[in-house]
């Protein structure tokens, strides 16, 4: 997937996560801030990296501000931010998500 603009998705409400994503040059540069960093920091990182890899994104700057989101929410927010960045609104390949 070709990222074009900086884009965001998600909120700072409890159980949600706010993701910001922008085109990058040197692989995935990931910053994570989480209310549950000590317990789940590594799991969050893994989910975000997995989701980006599934989307075929190899270079990006990604900021995660997590408020205790479940993994399914993290994935949803990362995908939404990525598709917004790429400017794709419809025809999402749902079976690949």
């Amino acid at each position: 997937m070709q990222l074009i603009n900086r884009a965001m998705a998600g909120t700072l409400e409890s159980s949600d996560a706010q993701i910001s994503i922008a085109p990058g040059k040197d692989g995935i540069v990931l910053h994570i801030q989480s209310t549950v960093q000590n317990q789940y920091g590594r799991a969050i990182k893994q989910s975000v990296l997995d989701t980006l890899s599934k989307l075929g994104i190899e270079n990006a700057e990604v900021d995660v501000n997590d408020r205790g989101a479940l993994e399914c929410t993290l994935r949803a927010r990362v995908e939404c931010a990525a598709y917004r960045s790429a400017g794709i609104e419809a025809g999402i390949p749902w079976e690949e998500m």
């Binding site: 998705a9 998600g10 479940l70 993994e71 399914c72 929410t73 994935r75 949803a76 927010r77 995908e79 939404c80 598709y83 917004r84 609104e89 999402i92 749902w94 998500m97």
Partner: peptide
């Protein structure tokens, strides 16, 4: 758009 991604993953997990 955000609601659709959220819906999809909720139903799948």
């Amino acid at each position: 758009d955000a609601a659709r991604f959220s819906l999809y993953h909720a139903l799948k997990t």
